[in-house]
Amino acid sequence: MFYPNSPQTSPQLTQIPYGQQYAMMQRQIQQPYHPFATTEPQARLYPYHYQGPIQQEQGGFITQQSTAASPQYVQMRVTPVDQSIMSGYPNQTANGSSSSSFNYNIHPQQQQQQQQQQQQLRHHAMPVGSVPLQDDRYRKQLIVNYLAPDVTSTDLHELFSRFGELDGARIIYDKQTNMSKGYGFVYFCHAEDAKEAVERMSGYEFHGKWLKVGYSTNPLNIVPSNSSPYVHAGSRGAAG
């Protein structure tokens, strides 16, 4: 039997160049792979992502010199942007860049009308829970959420009447099932009393439920100042 490094198959040491006398086997001759043993700084910083320098080929596509990437890492192929796409944008300079302001050559009167329309939209648009300043009635009506099913309009009136005089209180019921929808409205005579009720009743436990109280901004629920107070009856038909 002959071994790869046996004296019968191995040459004389004098015939082997210096430095390879003890590297006779194939696994010894093959050098191990060192990912950080390279002179390129990109490979030292990113050993798993770097795959060699990027070269520009004919046709405008950018390719990489090395083989496919590892399945664990996804390499994105980048193509140059066609400058003709950006030619339609206004205020574009000769080098292809555009300024931040756009001039669509709008007539001054049209621009003024658009600004007025935007101001009107901001004036009428009102986020949930906010209180408008032009109508004091919005500051007097509250919406009470997360009410228990057994709470009546009379219970709601008695709960909030300790903060001040009320114009009314009612629970909203479903017309088909005649069941409470879980929320109601309270109408105060003074805005200061309503503000105190919002601050003190939010998070209050009532009939096993934690109440959420806020201003009601729905104009359909506003009680006119010259109208008669609501009837605080315990029956659902009268309260709904």
Rank of each mutant, 00 (worst) to 15 (best):
Y183H: 00
Y187F: 00
D155G: 04
F61G: 04
K140R: 11
A94N: 01
D150N: 08
G164W: 06
P53F: 15
L159D: 15
H190L: 07
T63M: 14
F163E: 01
N105K: 11
V151G: 11
D135C: 01
Y187L: 08
M179K: 09
Q118L: 14
F160P: 11
Y215N: 07
S84P: 13
I171F: 15
P53K: 03
S202N: 05
I16G: 01
S10A: 08
Q12E: 11
L211Q: 00
A68W: 08
S100D: 01
A191E: 15
P32T: 09
E192W: 00
F188N: 02
P71M: 09
G214C: 09
S87V: 05
M126G: 06
S202A: 05
Q51R: 03
G182I: 12
V151L: 04
S97M: 00
K209D: 02
Q83V: 07
C189M: 07
P4Y: 14
K195H: 05
P41T: 09
T9G: 12
Y230D: 10
S228D: 03
T63Y: 10
D150M: 03
S227K: 09
Q30R: 01
I106C: 09
N226V: 04
A239H: 03
K181A: 02
Q113V: 05
V78E: 09
V223Q: 06
G52N: 04
P149M: 13
Q20R: 11
V128E: 01
Y104K: 07
P32F: 05
V151Q: 04
L159K: 00
H207D: 00
I85G: 07
K195R: 08
H124T: 04
K175A: 07
P7F: 03
A69W: 15
Y3W: 15
D174L: 00
I171Q: 09
Q21T: 08
T154K: 07
S70I: 02
Y183W: 01
L142V: 04
P4G: 02
Q21F: 09
V198A: 02
L211A: 05
S87W: 15
R236T: 02
L211E: 13
E40F: 15
S6K: 01
N221V: 06
P90F: 05
H34D: 15
F206T: 01
M76S: 04
L211S: 09
T9L: 12
Y48W: 13
Q113H: 01
N95G: 01
I222S: 11
Q111P: 11
S101D: 13
A94E: 13
G203H: 12
T177S: 04
K212Y: 07
Q20D: 00
A169W: 00
Q75L: 15
F185R: 02
Q20S: 07
F36G: 09
S98A: 12
N103R: 04
F36D: 04
V81P: 02
H207F: 09
R27D: 02
K209G: 05
Q15C: 15
N218I: 09
M86S: 09
F160C: 08
T177I: 04
P90W: 04
K175Q: 09
Q111H: 11
N218Y: 02
G182K: 15
M24P: 08
A23I: 10
G60H: 00
E165N: 13
E205W: 10
K140I: 01
A43K: 01
I29C: 00
V231E: 09
G203K: 03
P132C: 09
Y138R: 03
S101K: 15
P17N: 01
P17A: 05
L133E: 00
P90G: 12
R137P: 12
Q117N: 12
S180M: 03
Y48K: 04
Q112L: 06
N178V: 02
R44Q: 03
Y230S: 09
Q110P: 09
K195Q: 10
F2C: 00
Y104V: 06
Y48F: 08
E40P: 13
Y73W: 10
Q83Y: 14
P35W: 00
Y173A: 10
Y48A: 03
T154Y: 15
E40G: 12
D82W: 10
G214Y: 01
T217R: 06
P219Q: 03
R170F: 00
M179T: 14
R44W: 15
A239M: 09
